[in-house]
């Protein structure tokens, strides 16, 4: 995968996490506990995806350039 894809994934997860946190807070104060759990699962999975994408991006970004002597 290209580095652009990692950028896209990271920003996509950022959007998902903002929305998930918003819904979690709303559900918590609305005492809809089942929905709180659902959005937490979404948020945590999205965070993991984001972190994995970051690690992969880092690997690609800091890879030593091929030596063309």
């Amino acid at each position: 995968m290209g580095k652009t894809v990692y950028w896209a994934v990271i920003f996509l997860t950022l959007i998902v996490n903002v929305v998930a946190l918003h819904h979690t807070v709303e559900a918590y104060f609305g005492r809809e506990h089942e929905e709180v759990f659902v959005y937490t699962i979404v948020g945590v999975i999205s965070s993991i995806i984001c972190f994995v994408a970051y690690l992969m991006w880092r690997k690609a970004e800091y890879k030593k350039a091929d030596n063309h002597n």
Binding site: I10, T13, L14, N17, A20, L21, T24, G43, S47, F51
Partner: peptide, 9 residues
């Protein structure tokens, strides 16, 4: 992103 996701916990 990670901080926001974990803030739901």
């Amino acid at each position: 992103s990670v901080a926001l996701g974990l803030a739901t916990l």
